[in-house]
Deep mutational scan, measured.
Amino acid sequence: NKFNKEMRNAYWEILLLPNLNEQQKRAFIRSLYDDPSQSANLLAEAKKLNDAQA
């Protein structure tokens, strides 16, 4: 399933972002589970926040 693969990839990438705190990571991951079809958008948002907090 395409969404499962995308979601899994986004999950691990979000977990490994160094500048997000645990609460932020949990919020993004919760959103991933709520709507896996938004994986790419959520990952992009997480990366943007990660860069902003660098």
Score class of each variant (00 low, 15 high):
Asn1Asp: 14
Asn1Lys: 05
Asn1Thr: 04
Asn1Met: 02
Asn1Ser: 03
Lys2His: 13
Lys2Gly: 14
Lys2Tyr: 04
Lys2Trp: 12
Lys2Thr: 14
Lys2Met: 09
Lys2Phe: 12
Lys2Gln: 15
Phe3Leu: 12
Phe3Pro: 14
Phe3Arg: 04
Phe3Trp: 09
Phe3Asp: 14
Phe3Gln: 13
Phe3His: 13
Phe3Asn: 12
Asn4Phe: 10
Asn4Arg: 03
Asn4Trp: 15
Asn4Tyr: 13
Asn4Ala: 03
Asn4Glu: 14
Asn4Met: 04
Lys5Leu: 01
Lys5Val: 02
Lys5Pro: 05
Lys5Phe: 01
Lys5Ile: 02
Lys5Met: 01
Lys5Asp: 04
Glu6Phe: 03
Glu6Pro: 03
Glu6Met: 04
Glu6Lys: 03
Glu6Leu: 06
Met7Trp: 15
Met7Asp: 02
Met7Tyr: 04
Met7Asn: 01
Met7Ser: 04
Met7Lys: 01
Arg8Gly: 02
Arg8Met: 14
Arg8Asn: 04
Arg8Pro: 01
Arg8Glu: 14
Asn9Trp: 13
Asn9Ile: 15
Asn9Leu: 13
Asn9Pro: 01
Asn9Tyr: 15
Asn9Asp: 08
Asn9Val: 14
Ala10Ile: 09
Ala10Ser: 05
Ala10Thr: 10
Ala10Leu: 05
Ala10Asn: 02
Ala10Gln: 02
Ala10Lys: 03
Ala10Val: 08
Tyr11Arg: 14
Tyr11Ser: 04
Tyr11Leu: 09
Tyr11His: 06
Trp12Glu: 08
Trp12Asp: 05
Trp12Val: 04
Trp12Leu: 03
Trp12Met: 05
Trp12His: 14
Trp12Ser: 07
Trp12Asn: 14
Trp12Phe: 12
Trp12Ala: 07
Trp12Gln: 05
Glu13Pro: 01
Glu13Val: 15
Glu13Arg: 15
Glu13His: 15
Glu13Phe: 15
Ile14Trp: 00
Ile14Gly: 01
Ile14Asn: 00
Ile14Tyr: 00
Ile14Met: 10
Ile14Glu: 00
Ile14Gln: 00
Ile14Pro: 00
Leu15Thr: 09
Leu15Gln: 09
Leu15Met: 07
Leu15Pro: 01
Leu15Ser: 07
Leu15Ile: 08
Leu15His: 09
Leu15Tyr: 05
Leu15Trp: 06
Leu16Asn: 14
Leu16Ile: 05
Leu16Phe: 12
Leu16Glu: 05
Leu16Ala: 13
Leu16Lys: 15
Leu17Ala: 07
Leu17Asn: 02
Leu17Ile: 02
Leu17Gln: 08
Leu17Glu: 01
Leu17Arg: 02
Pro18Phe: 06
Pro18Val: 05
Pro18Glu: 07
Pro18Tyr: 07
Pro18Asn: 09
Asn19Asp: 07
Asn19Ser: 07
Asn19Met: 08
Asn19Pro: 00
Asn19Arg: 13
Asn19Leu: 08
Asn19Gln: 07
Leu20Pro: 00
Leu20Thr: 01
Leu20Met: 06
Leu20Tyr: 00
Asn21Ser: 07
Asn21Val: 08
Asn21Glu: 12
Asn21Gly: 11
Asn21Lys: 07
Asn21Tyr: 15
Glu22Gly: 09
Glu22Asp: 11
Glu22Trp: 10
Glu22Lys: 09
Gln23Ile: 08
Gln23Trp: 15
Gln23Gly: 09
Gln23Asp: 07
Gln23His: 09
Gln23Leu: 08
Gln23Val: 10
Gln24Lys: 03
Gln24Pro: 00
Gln24Arg: 06
Gln24Glu: 06
Lys25Trp: 03
Lys25Val: 07
Lys25Gly: 01
Lys25His: 03
Lys25Arg: 14
Lys25Asp: 00
Lys25Ile: 07
Arg26Gly: 03
Arg26Leu: 05
Arg26Gln: 05
Arg26Tyr: 13
Arg26Ala: 04
Arg26Trp: 13
Arg26Met: 09
Ala27Glu: 02
Ala27Thr: 15
Ala27Gly: 07
Ala27Leu: 13
Phe28Tyr: 10
Phe28Leu: 05
Phe28His: 02
Ile29Gln: 03
Ile29Tyr: 09
Ile29Leu: 06
Ile29Val: 09
Ile29Glu: 01
Ile29Thr: 12
Ile29Asn: 01
Arg30Thr: 04
Arg30Asp: 02
Arg30Ser: 05
Arg30Pro: 00
Arg30Lys: 04
Arg30Trp: 13
Arg30Ala: 04
Arg30Gln: 03
Arg30Ile: 05
Ser31Thr: 07
Ser31Tyr: 06
Ser31Gly: 08
Ser31Val: 08
Leu32Asn: 01
Leu32Gly: 01
Leu32Lys: 00
Leu32Met: 04
Leu32Trp: 03
Tyr33Thr: 04
Tyr33Ile: 06
Tyr33Arg: 05
Tyr33Gln: 02
Tyr33Leu: 06
Tyr33Met: 11
Tyr33His: 04
Asp34Phe: 13
Asp34Glu: 11
Asp34Lys: 14
Asp34Ala: 13
Asp34Tyr: 12
Asp34Ser: 14
Asp35Gly: 11
Asp35Leu: 10
Asp35Tyr: 10
Asp35Lys: 11
Pro36Asn: 05
Pro36Tyr: 04
Pro36Phe: 06
Pro36Trp: 04
Pro36Glu: 02
Pro36Asp: 02
Pro36Gln: 05
Pro36Val: 04
Ser37Pro: 04
Ser37Lys: 12
Ser37Asp: 06
Ser37Thr: 11
Ser37Ala: 10
Gln38Arg: 11
Gln38Met: 05
Ser39Arg: 13
Ser39Gly: 05
Ser39Met: 14
Ser39Lys: 10
Ser39Pro: 10
Ser39Asp: 01
Ser39Thr: 08
Ser39Trp: 14
Ala40Ser: 11
Ala40His: 13
Ala40Met: 12
Ala40Asn: 08
Ala40Phe: 14
Ala40Gly: 06
Ala40Trp: 15
Asn41Trp: 14
Asn41Ala: 07
Asn41Lys: 14
Asn41Tyr: 14
Asn41Phe: 15
Asn41Met: 12
Asn41Thr: 13
Asn41Arg: 11
Leu42Trp: 13
Leu42Gln: 04
Leu42Val: 10
Leu42Pro: 02
Leu42His: 12
Leu42Ile: 11
Leu43Pro: 01
Leu43Asn: 04
Leu43Met: 07
Leu43Val: 05
Leu43Glu: 03
Leu43Gln: 08
Leu43Tyr: 04
Leu43Trp: 05
Leu43Ile: 05
Ala44Leu: 10
Ala44His: 10
Ala44Arg: 10
Ala44Gln: 09
Ala44Val: 08
Ala44Met: 12
Glu45Met: 15
Glu45Thr: 13
Glu45His: 13
Glu45Phe: 14
Glu45Gly: 11
Glu45Asn: 13
Ala46Tyr: 03
Ala46Val: 03
Ala46Met: 01
Ala46Thr: 02
Ala46His: 00
Lys47Gln: 07
Lys47Thr: 03
Lys47Tyr: 12
Lys47His: 08
Lys47Asn: 06
Lys47Ile: 05
Lys48Met: 11
Lys48Glu: 08
Lys48Arg: 09
Lys48Phe: 12
Leu49Glu: 06
Leu49Phe: 08
Leu49Ile: 09
Asn50Lys: 01
Asn50His: 06
Asn50Ala: 09
Asn50Met: 02
Asn50Asp: 08
Asn50Glu: 04
Asn50Arg: 02
Asn50Trp: 01
Asp51Phe: 14
Asp51Trp: 15
Asp51His: 15
Asp51Asn: 13
Asp51Tyr: 13
Ala52Arg: 11
Ala52Asn: 06
Ala52Trp: 12
Ala52Thr: 09
Gln53Ala: 08
Gln53Thr: 10
Gln53Val: 12
Ala54Trp: 11
Ala54Arg: 02
Ala54Val: 12
Ala54His: 11
Ala54Asp: 12
